[in-house]
Every structure is written in structure tokens, then in C-alpha cells.
Design a protein around this nucleic acid. Structure first.
Lengths: 216, 216
DNA sequence: CACTTCCTAAAACTTATGTTCTGCCAACAG
DNA sequence: CTGTTGGCAGAACATAAGTTTTAGGAAGTG
């Protein structure tokens, strides 16, 4: 959601529509697309509002070019159409995990978000991200400040890296999951570290880690 | 570069042009854009060739829609326009680094490549990627199979994570760089590990690490 | 009230752009 | 030779889509 100034509801609606349209169709909408979708009576009204949005730096219009609308970010840079994943909170050894609703829908709206390669969402569907706080995940080769990309899940297959919640200990952790009878072996990614064992009933799988992103 | 069957040179040229146009302009070209760029005498010829490319699964045309061309990948899926970074080779403790020409140009052509968030190339310009082989970088919290995204550079500022080449040892490594007089301290990201010291003349900075991507 | 500003409407205009038609030519098979 | 196929050219056509023109209403301001 692009919000910088207080926008008239009509302009906000137009802006949102453009964003969604690009996301879904891959190409920008026409003036008439906008007209229909936003219940505007006339193309000139769309044009008028687009001009203002252009003036205020929300978008760029290539004159005389069909579908020449280009959305801009806060710095006036063209916005990409690659998916953004909401960072629903942080994860640290001692902290409770944020609840992330599997029902995404309005998802990316209320959170900070991170751009991810489109391939990820193509392969795994709706995703969430957690910011890693502290060095408690270092045995999973995950550093303070890393972002882990999560696919919501309640179960995992053996060998998958999961977001695990240890109920008794009230601890969150990132480990490779191995169900062995009714105990679970949690194996650090760093093979030099020892695994942890816990009873299957004490462990709640919150999601699967599909990617880790570290920036410098 | 999209190559699946042997294509007539004209169709290959058209396909390449469409790809470049989308990359540079952010929206697909019109039939007439293609006509001019590929020295075609008539729009009907472009249309004709587009229809064949469509039939053969190279692209998708939305009928009656301006700029309705959409490129498809081998599986017939829409191709995203997020930047791809060439994976110019692998990095491991004992192995020589691949030479990566700073002159990109034909860059992404001959290599495997990885999709990265557009933000990266916006911020850092032309980038390269290295696939990490083995666990020798584990002290940098980088695992076997990780992809490190590199900005080519010959110098680095203190504290930056660099791709370093130790000449005498003939070893490549990923460490934080600190110049101290005429020796260099190479600090593992994992603060529990001890730094390495070497003479500045023995060390060659090959690039700066701007991101690490790990997939599961 | 007169005057301005912001926003909306309806219709017409222009051009950008997808589409079609007709014909030509070379290569090749029967 | 005759027919067929693949590719190209030129022109015209149809409509999708950006742009402009004229006008009116609501809200504020002097």
C-alpha cells in the first residue's frame, strides 16, 4: 500500500487499483480500465486524477503511450512488480513468536515488507518473513539481522528446516526437523553442533523456512 | 537469452528485442516498436512472426490489448522482469576464484543465473553471484550451497564483508575486512571465531558481498 | 453575492496500436 | 509445369486508448 500524503479517497482508490492491476496482469492498466474499476464516470476524470498523482510523485506517465503508467516509490524510483513478503515480526530464542494468520488477504498492508525473487512465491505460495534478533540462531547459520522467509505449515517432513516452538521452554528456534518415534530430533544446520531432542507433543511446527536473506 | 528450438534469425531477433525492451522499459513493446527495432518492413510481418512465436509457446499475446505481449519460460510460465545475476562460478577454500569481468554487457548470457530482488541491483549496480561449495565458509555463517551476491570491487572499507584472495595461500575466503596499518585483519562473521591476520600485499579484494541467499 | 479552487461529467478528438487483406517470391515436392 | 508452403511487403482497416474541450456543482473566502 502506497501512502505518503493524505490522498482523496478517489485517488487512493485509483492508486491501489493500479498497483493491484500491475501485480495481477503484469502490465499497467489503461485509463479506461481504471475508469471502470474505480466507478468513474469519465475518462477525463481519471486523466485529471492521474495528472495530479503524477505531479505529486506517486507515478509517472509516458505521454501518448498506451499503458504508460509507472508507479514510483518514496524516492521517485520506479517500483518493481516483484512480490513483497510481510515481515510479521521477529524471532529470537527467548521471545514468543508473533502470530501470523494463515489468511493473508490484507497481509502486506500493515507490516514492513521485503522484496523477494518472484520464484519463491511461485513455488511456495503465500509467505511470511521473520527478522532474526540476536545470535541465538547462529547454530542454524543464521545471524542477527537476517530475514527468514517462511511458508506457513503445521507439519513438516523429515529434513526440512522449520520454525519450531518449544511449548514448555517457551522458546522459538530454527532447526532441521526429524520425527523419530514420538520424539523429535532438532538438528542444527551447522553439523558441528549437537542436536536437541524433545517430545513430539512439546513441539509445535509453525512453518517451514524456504529461504534466508542476508544483506550487508 | 531464450533459446529452445532453432529459430529463424528474424524470430530470434524479435524475441531478444522483446526481452530487452521489457527489461529496459518495464512494459512490453508494441508491434511497431518491434518493427522498427528489427528492421521489418511491415507490421503484418511482425504480427505473422509473433503469431508463430505464440503458437510455439515462446510468448503469449492478449488479443486486442495494447502491449499485450508476455514472455513465457520453458514451462510456459510468464517470465518475471526482475533482474537475474549471473552465477559466474563457485567459491571454496581451496579453489581459485573464477575471473569475473567487470565489463558485464553480455553478462547474464553464458551463465546460470539467479533471480534477485530488484532492490539489490538498484542499490549496487551490476552484480555477480558465486555458489558456495563446501563448508569452509561456515565461520562466515555461510553454508554449502548458499549463493553470495557480489559487487565487483578492488578496495573495501573497514567492516565490509569481502571476497578476499590470499595470494600466497592461494585461497579464497569471505570475511569482514579491517585494514590495520599494513596488515589486514579478516574477521569471521561468527564472533566466536578468531580473526586471521595477513599482510595487505598478500591480499586481493575481489568484491564486496552485498547479500547471501539460501534456499531450502 | 461574486470569485476562486477542487472535483466531476459527457462527449468528441486524435493517435497509437492491434488486425486483416491482397499479392509477391523463393523453395520444394509431385 | 503445377501446386503447396513459408516468409515477406504494402496498404488499409478497426478499435483501443491517450488527450482535449466545455460545462457544472460543491465548498470555501472575501
Amino acid at each position: 500500500m502506497i501512502i505518503r500524503k493524505k490522498l482523496s479517497s478517489r485517488r487512493q482508490r485509483i492508486l491501489n487499483f493500479i498497483q493491484e492491476f500491475i501485480q495481477e496482469e503484469g502490465i499497467p492498466p489503461t485509463v479506461r480500465d481504471i475508469q471502470k474499476a474505480c466507478d468513474v464516470s469519465s475518462t477525463s476524470v481519471v486523466d485529471y486524477n492521474l495528472r495530479l498523482l503524477n505531479r505529486d510523485g506517486y507515478l509517472n506517465r509516458r505521454p501518448d503511450v498506451a499503458r504508460g503508467i509507472e508507479l514510483l516509490d518514496n524516492e521517485g524510483q520506479p517500483v518493481s512488480n516483484s512480490p513483497r513478503v510481510p515481515i510479521v515480526g521477529s524471532i529470537a530464542a527467548g521471545l514468543p513468536l508473533p502470530v501470523f494468520s494463515t489468511e493473508g488477504a490484507a497481509s502486506t498492508r500493515e507490516f514492513d515488507s521485503i522484496e523477494v525473487p518472484p520464484e519463491l512465491t511461485r513455488r511456495h505460495g503465500e509467505l511470511y518473513a521473520l527478522a532474526v534478533k540476536g545470535t541465538s540462531m547462529i547454530d542454524a547459520l543464521i545471524d542477527d539481522g537476517d530475514i527468514v522467509i517462511i511458508q506457513p505449515a503445521q507439519q513438516a517432513a523429515n529434513g526440512e528446516m522449520v520454525v519450531a516452538w518449544l511449548k514448555d521452554e517457551e522458546e522459538a528456534t530454527l532447526k532441521k526437523y526429524y520425527l523419530e518415534g514420538d520424539t523429535v530430533r532438532l538438528q542444527p544446520a551447522n553439523s558441528q553442533m549437537e542436536p536437541i531432542y524433545c517430545s513430539a507433543s512439546n513441539l509445535e511446527v509453525k512453518g517451514k523456512v524456504v529461504s534466508v536473506i542476508r544483506k550487508f
